[in-house]
Nucleic acid binder design. Sequence first.
RNA 1: GCGCCCAUCGUCUAUCGGAUAGGACACAAGGUUUUCAUCCUUGUAAGCGGGGUUCGACUCCCCGUGGGCGCGCCA
Length: 527
Amino acid sequence: MSVRVRFAPSPTGHVHIGNIRAAIFNWLFARHCGGKFLLRIEDTDRERSTPEACSSLMDAIDWLGLAADEPPLYQSSRRDSHLLAAEKLLQQGQAYRKPEAAGNGPGAVVFRIPYETDRIPFIREAGPAELNVHPDEPVTVSAEGITFAQVSRKGKPMPAGCCLAGAKNLKIFAADICLFDLAEHMAEITQGAAFSLEKADKISFLRREVVFEDTVKGLLAKPLDGVKDLVIVRSDGNPVFHLANVCDDAFQQITHIIRGDDHVENTFRHLLLFNALGFAAPVYAHLPMIVNAAGKPYSKRDGDAYVGDFRNRGFCADALFNYLSLLGWSPGDDREKMTRAEMIELFTQERVKSAAAQMDVKKLTHLNWMYLSEMESGEFCRNVWQALAGCPWRPPAEDDDYFRKVCGLMQSRANVFSDAAEWLYFFDENAPVDQAALDKQLARQGVKEALHALARLLDECNFSEEALAAALRAAEVAAGLGEGKLNQPARIAVTGTTRGAGIYETMAVMGRERVMQRLRHTLELTQ
RNA sequence: GCGCCCAUCGUCUAUCGGAUAGGACACAAGGUUUUCAUCCUUGUAAGCGGGGUUCGACUCCCCGUGGGCGCGCCA
């Protein structure tokens, strides 16, 4: 069977890097196996799902090049099918209706964790179990499960309970006298009878557990006495996530579910749902979380954890993709910067780690710098132009020859596209000046004279790099300065900053008019 | 409270019982350079603690500790 995986976000708010990393891993796995990568929009939460969130989600997916192999499936369009599945479970006795508290209207539909598990291969017996219960609270037993109170460390009753299946062969004791034996009352309970036992102090049962092999976390087990029956259709008639999720994974014929490990606990119940619905269960792989610089999980409140933010901050999609792929995964050798083809070839779920990874923006920035410096110059220009959209100033035009030259000169120095905001001096004669640095340079013996001499020499200069260098040398000689001593003063006088590309190249790119204007302006102000 | 999961330099990671625990980012020092960036050298820096198993443990097991997740008619 060919591999089919999916990314199934819910369109509430912006897409989080943790989510998109899950998408990346799914995508890589699908490509690695020659399988299909699908997209499913889980928009069943009508109150929180918005069209804006949907389009921002699509933007992020497009931007990162995570194209799906089939049209996206909107979960809300499958509502009837979900309800049909619930109806089927109801008819088969694998689900029941919870009575509505107010007594009006049909109650929520609840999936019953199956009591008979002989035919369910992923459930195994884990041996007999005993639990002390608090005698002040009754132990109740019905087809909907059992409830009781555990004894806290301080001797207080703590409410607890589980599905009926969690307590196979349940016996309830008071002072070692058996008050109730589930085996004797099974028929009545199936008919709807409920029991309440007072003053019990101990229960015993056969513990069973759900077991599955997670591709990244290994063998995972969960005792059924830690599981409750789960609502699959709300009393308002809407299907719940668990039902919709399982139905749609079956509908889309998903073979592998790769998702965040916050879903591990759901998996035990989803496995049961797949089984009850008659579907083969997919293979599961749970990805470790990505945490923020404080080592805490990213919450919706972390303003810098959205995919769009990284784009706005000037990161390129390939660099972010590459960086995110390295969070919780590595190819096994020392490779870090990889092409997509390499990542696809090397990606296996077995190499995914199971410990949480912390996001390091500095390392991302470094990777981004590498991507930017290797980028085709036209593409670099286009991106810089876009990054400048939010800037108060803009170069004349994206395809402007001068703008392209500036980009070419500065490309290797850019960490992120938005670093271009500091290139203002190329475009605006009134760009800000680092006054302290300027004063410091001009205070040096002979510098002012040299700059005046330079201004005169530049009148005769053809503005090639060689000629500019020669002019600077000549001005130094005329003012009695050592070789190279005029470079920094000239840079500040012309660009207003102490840093940038080589000053000869910079002046050559800027050209006579801009350089002379800026230089004369500086000299006038410092008479 | 109960259940499940996780644990190597500050950070991301390599190591699938066997040599001085390797790489990258960051940081520090030095060199190159026309400032900055680059580039080159070098350096600081790690197996959470305690028990086992073993000739040998970062690696396997147990107990602690710390962290995360889950325990909804949210997804």
